[in-house]
Write a protein that binds this DNA or RNA. Structure first.
Lengths: 164, 164, 164, 164
DNA sequence: TTTT
DNA sequence: TTTT
C-alpha cells in the first residue's frame, strides 16, 4: 500500500563500465554512472550545457544483465525510483547519497566504446526485465565471483558494499 | 540539443508549508519537501515502509503558484528533472544536494492541514503551468516581499539562498 | 525481450462507476472511463478546453481492487500501456478500440460522488498493486459473481466480453 | 488550468518514413508510425510477442525536425499525450482515430534503414524541442513545399489533412 | 460521462 | 516533516 508515486525515467550514456558486486546472499548489485545533458539559453542568449551524472543501481537479475551487457558509452533507458541515503563515516561525518533504483532497463542503439570487449549484439533494445540471453558471450567476463556464502534475498550486504 | 532524458514524476504530500525566496532578479524560488512512501515485504514477510523526502524546487511563475497554493499536507503531482549540486562550505567541506526541479505541478484532491489558513479552494487540480488566479485569497499572505532590486531572469541568487 | 517502451501515465476522474466482468478463467477485468482535461489558448486568445476520455482496463487482482474502490468521480493515478485492438463486427465492419492497460493504480484524494454508497476510506492513495483490504465494506457490493467455472489465468473471455 | 495528467512516453522504431503535411497556416504536421513490441509468457509458457503501432504527430517546429531527421527504422524517444478523434465519413460512418501528440522527441542511437538517404549524423540524441541543426544535409530533401498562403498558427487544416 |  |  504505497502512498505516492516516485518514478524516474532516464535515457543516457554510461560514463564508465558497470560495477557489479554481490550481497552476502548472492544477489547482484550493479552500479552505473549515467549521463544526461540538458541545454538552455542563459540571459545573455548563450547556450549553457549541464550534465547530470546519475548513480543507477540494478539489483538481482537485472543487476546481472546490466553488468554483462552495458559498457562505457552504452546508451540505455532506465526506469526506476529515487532513493536518498545517509551514512555516517568513521570520522563521524554524515554523507548523503542519491541513487536511482532501477526497475527496468533497455539497451538502446548506438555503439559502446568499451574498447576490446565488443558487447553482444543486442540492437533495438532487449528488455532486461523479462528475459536473459542464456549464453553471454564476447570479451572478458564481467562477473566477479559471487561470495561463496549464499543467504536469502535481502541479506545484509558485504562490507565492501558500503558506498563510501 | 539535449542528449538524454532526465524525467521525474512524483505524487506525494508536503511535510511542511512551502518556502519561497526571491532571486536578486525577482524570480520566485519555492522549495517544498514532498513525501513518497513505498512498502515492500522483507525476507521474513514483514511489511517494510520507507519514505523518501524529495526536495522539489519551483522557479518563476510556478514558484509563485506553489508558494501560494500548496500547504503542509497538500497532495500534489510534480513533473520535473533531477539536479545534483555540490557546494563547498566555509569549513571547506563539500556538501551534496539533490533537487527535483519542477516543470509542472498539479494540486490533487485531499485536504491540506495548514492550520488556520484555509487554502483557496482548488481541489481536484488546476495546472500550475498555465494559469494563475488573479486574486489569491485566504489566510495570511504567503508571499514574502520580493527584493526591490530586480534584475533579469537568471540573475544571481541572494546571499541567503545558499542551500546550507 | 521487449523492444521499445510503451508507457502511459494518467491522472484523472472517473466519468462513471467501474464495470467489472470476469473471464471464463475467473479473472476480473474492470473497465473505467477516465477524463483528463487540457486547456490551451487558441489563436484568438480564447481559452479552449478539451477532454480526453480514456478507456482504462485493469486485470486480475488490480481489476478487483479498481472495481471495489473506484467510483464515479473518483480521482486516480494510472500507469500502464496503450493497446490498439481491431474487431470485425457481425456486419463485417471493422471497429477500432484503444485501451490503456493498467499496471498500477493509486486512488488520490477527493471525494467520490457515487450516491449512497460511501466508499471505504482510502483517501490519499493506497497502492493497488500490492495489497488488498481483506474486508471490503460499505454500500452495495460491487462484485458481480465470478463464473463458477474457473480456468487458468489467460483463459478465453466470456462471450459478453466482446467490446462492441 | 488543466485538470488531470495525460502523458505518454514511447521508445520505438519507425515503420516507414515520416509524412509531413502543412496546414493552411504553414505549420508542419509530421506523422510517423512507431512500433513498440512487448513480450509475455502465455499460460502455456509460450512466448507471445505483440507489437503496437502508434500514430505519432509532431506539430510546428518539431514537425519539421521529425520530418527531416527521422527515417524508416529510426529509433526515437517520444513524449506526448493521447488524443482521441472521431470523424464521420462521407458514407456517414464514424471513424475513430487515436494519436499521440508529441511534445518532445529525441533520436536515439541505431541505424535507420531508409535506403539511400543516410540521415545526418546525430548520434547520442539531439533534443528536438530546443534546437535545430542549421544545415540539414544528406539525401533527398524531405520537406514538401509549404502552402504559399500562410495564416496564423492554429489555422484550419488543408482539405487533404483529413485523416481518412 | 468526470472534475474545476 | 506528509499521508494512510
Amino acid at each position: 500500500m504505497a502512498r505516492g508515486i516516485n518514478k524516474v525515467i532516464l535515457v543516457g550514456n554510461l560514463g564508465n563500465d558497470p560495477e557489479t558486486k554481490y550481497t552476502q546472499g548472492g544477489m547482484a548489485v550493479t552500479t552505473i554512472s549515467l549521463a544526461t545533458t540538458s541545454v538552455r539559453k542563459d540571459k545573455d542568449g548563450q547556450t549553457q550545457e549541464r550534465t547530470e551524472w546519475h548513480r543507477v543501481k540494478f539489483f538481482g537479475k537485472l543487476g546481472e544483465i546490466a553488468g554483462e551487457y552495458l559498457r562505457k558509452g552504452s546508451q540505455c533507458y532506465v526506469e526506476g525510483s529515487i532513493r536518498y541515503d545517509k551514512f555516517t563515516g568513521a570520522d563521524g561525518v554524515e554523507k548523503y547519497f542519491t541513487d536511482i533504483v532501477a526497475d527496468e532497463m533497455q539497451m538502446l542503439g548506438g555503439r559502446a566504446e568499451g574498447g576490446g570487449a565488443p558487447r553482444r549484439e543486442f540492437s533495438g533494445g532487449g528488455e532486461a526485465r523479462q528475459s536473459r540471453p542464456s549464453q553471454p558471450q564476447g570479451g572478458a567476463p564481467r562477473r566477479e565471483a559471487a561470495p561463496a556464502k549464499a543467504n536469502d534475498f535481502g541479506a545484509d550486504f558485504a562490507d565492501d558494499d558500503i558506498p563510501f
